[in-house]
Design a protein around this nucleic acid. Sequence first.
DNA 1: CGTAATTAGATTGTGCGCAACTTAAATTTG
DNA 2: CAAATTTAAGTTGCGCACAATCTAATTACG
Lengths: 147, 147
Amino acid sequence: MAIVDEMVCFSLYSATRATTRAYTELLAPWKLTYTQYLVLVILWNEGSQPVREIGEMLQLDSGTLSPLLRRLESKEFIKRQRSETDTRVVNVLLTEQGNNLRNELAHIPEQIACGTGLPDIASAKALVNSLHRLTESMQEIPTMDSK
Amino acid sequence: MAIVDEMVCFSLYSATRATTRAYTELLAPWKLTYTQYLVLVILWNEGSQPVREIGEMLQLDSGTLSPLLRRLESKEFIKRQRSETDTRVVNVLLTEQGNNLRNELAHIPEQIACGTGLPDIASAKALVNSLHRLTESMQEIPTMDSK
DNA sequence: CGTAATTAGATTGTGCGCAACTTAAATTTG
DNA sequence: CAAATTTAAGTTGCGCACAATCTAATTACG
C-alpha cells in the first residue's frame, strides 16, 4: 500500500472520484454530469431557485455555475429567467422535460446507496455527520487572512 | 439545511473540496497544486517512480499526469528521463530543489491533520478505513459492463 | 522468425472548480 | 438626491479528471 493511502485527504479525494465515476456511468444515457445532476436534485426538491441560492447550497460560484447552467439549458432541462423585481437575479426553473427526468432517474439514489457498501441508514448518517464536521473544521483554518 | 447535505456523495464531494482548498492555500507560496503535492509526497517517500506507478498509486491516467508532470518539471522540482532498458517507460525523479522542498513543506501534514478536526490518530485511521471500503465498494458497481 | 496483442506514455477535447475581473443593478450613506 | 458600496451574474484563464485516440516499443505466440 502506497504512502498516500494513509492520508485522510487522499482517501477522501479517492472516494469522491470513485463516487463521481459511478454517477457518471449511471447518468451517461442522459449525458448529464454529476454536478448537473446535483443542480437537478435541488430544483426537484426545493423548486425554482436563483443562481445565487444554488451556488450557496453547492458551494459553487458563478464561474462554475454560469456555464454549467447554460449547458443544462441547452439540453432543455432547465430555463433561466431574469427576475422582474430585481433584474440582477436570474431564476432557474425546470422545464417539463427536466421535471420528467425526476422519475426517469429515480433508480439512481438507491444504486449509489448500494454502491457505498454501507450496511444501513444509520451508518450512512454517521459518515455524513463526520464529513460535515470535517468540512466545517477545514473551512475554519486561519492561515494568513489575519487582516 | 438543503437536500444535498443529506447525501453521502455530496458530503464527500464537499469535504474533498474543502480539503483541497486548504492545501491550495498552504501550497500557494510554492505555486503547487494539491495533485502536484501528492506526486511529490510519493517521490519523497518511495523514491523515483515510472509514470505508470505514480498513476496507479494516485489512480490517475497519463491524460492527467503528462501535463501535470510537465508543469512540475518546468518548476524544476522533478526530472523525467526515459528508461534505457525499456524506452516506453519514463522515470520521474526529484531534482535537488524537489528534495529540499520536503523540509520546506514539512509543516503541512500537521496543519491539515489539525484542520480535519479529528481528535486523535485512531479516529483518523477509522475514517480512512471506512473511506477505503466505500471506494472499493463503489468501484465494484457492475452497471452495464456485462460483456 | 514474424505477426498480433499488449503496454507506456502523450495528445486532444470536454467539463468542472476556482481565482480574478467585468458589468450592471440595487442599496447604503453622506 | 448623488456618490460610494455592495450584490448578482457573467467572462476569462488555468489546472485538473477523464474519455478517446495515437504512436512507438515490447511481449506473446503461431
